[in-house]
Write a protein that binds this DNA or RNA. Sequence first.
DNA 1: TCAATAGTGTCTCTAAGACATTATGTT
DNA 2: AACATAATGTCTTAGAGACACTATTGA
Lengths: 221, 221
Amino acid sequence: MSAVICTVDVVLLTLLGEELAAVLLRREHEPFQGALAIPGGYVHPQDDLCAHDAAMRVIKNKTGIVAPYLEQLATFSGATRDPRGWSLSVAHYALVPYPLLAARKDAAVHVVPVSQLGTLPFDHRAMIDTALERLRNKSQYSSLPCFLAGDTFTLPQLQRLYELLLGETLNKVSFRRKMSEMDILDPVDGQFEAAGAHRPAQLYRLKAAVRKTLTVLERGL
Amino acid sequence: MSAVICTVDVVLLTLLGEELAAVLLRREHEPFQGALAIPGGYVHPQDDLCAHDAAMRVIKNKTGIVAPYLEQLATFSGATRDPRGWSLSVAHYALVPYPLLAARKDAAVHVVPVSQLGTLPFDHRAMIDTALERLRNKSQYSSLPCFLAGDTFTLPQLQRLYELLLGETLNKVSFRRKMSEMDILDPVDGQFEAAGAHRPAQLYRLKAAVRKTLTVLERGL
DNA sequence: TCAATAGTGTCTCTAAGACATTATGTT
DNA sequence: AACATAATGTCTTAGAGACACTATTGA
């Protein structure tokens, strides 16, 4: 019953261009001082009401943002994952639209495409892999990807986002049927252009009532 | 950064007759000495390789069995869940066929139908509720319920088990199509009777290759 | 007017469920 | 033989995907 090192870690994911990316920070302290790692820190029993609050605090302190979506992922523990001794980390994952991150981003914050992650300290790689698996799984039957989209977006953009996450192309008609079935989008008056010589797409935003909720489909996709 | 109380708890579920039941133990120590609670205990950094091992040890020590299915559920933490102070418990859930439990069961082990749970200490009720939700959810698209069935079982029995977990009746033809699709069952030579004046049902057992794995369906149910 | 993508109508095909029929045991 | 449930064949229906056609912009 000797002391256990209790920490939280956060896999902070965002959409960078056409790729999923994770937020990494350069570690200020040992172990692995100077290495890039995902945000994390000790649980502060005197400050944190629970591990979820600890994760929110870590995100806020290290990146300056309040993540629109934050969920517990899994707890990683063991004698060998941290050179300091037997440790336990409650891993979380958060989804953030990139503009939110860019607005607050200082030099210490690195946004690295998940396809280009180098070697990471601790079991951070396993945490990221688990987060990606969870995200991809939930993308099959929920509105989760919407938390990666910006404030407003078009249906073609949203479909490309789902396709990116699921790694397969989707049927346009079916995709729109499903979005309509979820009933989470409000059209925004005024159209969308930028894309050039073709019909502009309707802009949508998440309905206020579901801005903080996850909507789930009965039969997926 | 003061010390955090680190524990594991296990929601041990079994099928008691036609009902889901949880294993409760009478607590030997304070807090809540004498109350019925789910099995749990401190993480032992010197003995346990990780929290999963701690959960296996707790099950083994307190009930004498090795659970065929054990999975991490979620971590419950906070300042108020344990009167001793800020604590963190990695909750797991395990599925056990009742005969395995009955063979080892001593007087301290109580198997209580989930519909008849009284007030439980800590946040054990929330853990059980979370475990039930997870079990019901995974029953929609996986072979998870098979871990509650005995060594051998018939398809009508298995269907009744799925229906119990899902809380709805299932189409017999569809159910059998899905089981066949999962390709996890081996017929056992020799039939099944007991049920009386009608055609006996074929006995099945889980294929050896799948005895420790979870098989997942593409499109659920 | 052409090119390009958005948006929608409609047909096809697959899969789930309903129903019916056959199979096989006990009484 | 009667009955009860197992097991399976087959039809119906619902939903997903393919395809095509219309809409709307800039060049």
